[in-house]
Amino acid sequence: MEQELIWDLEQEKQRIMVHPILGRIEKGRRVKFTYDGREVEGYEGEPIAAALKAQGVMIHRYTAKKHSPRGIFCAIGRCTDCVMVVDGEPNIRTCITPLREGMTVQTQYGVSAEPFENQ
């Protein structure tokens, strides 16, 4: 537990550990998943976008027409800007899709996980 806390503080500075009003932030089990082929960790049940944000990930996808970067915008599943390729399926709203152990999360290029130069 102690070690996990230290790990958090060093690796995930964007996580709020203790909040003045909400107290200690309770999370689920710590799980591993892959982000663009890299093994990373998050908490089970939190939105994929939250786990990525804690890792400092800003870019979730590049748009189809102008190839411009997009990330979290509304965080409640409305705007669809944060969609990524999750377990091979494109257009998954990461801000409302709960993280599960072993998930494969990939940056979305247009509607594919393949960078544009390979499409």
């Binding site: 500075k13 964007q14 909040h19 939190e46 939250a50 979290i72 801000c95």
Partner: peptide, 12 residues
């Protein structure tokens, strides 16, 4: 989005 991230999910 800011409220959702920080107050629901504990992310700055």
């Amino acid at each position: 989005a800011a409220q959702t991230l920080m107050n629901l999910h504990g992310i700055k």
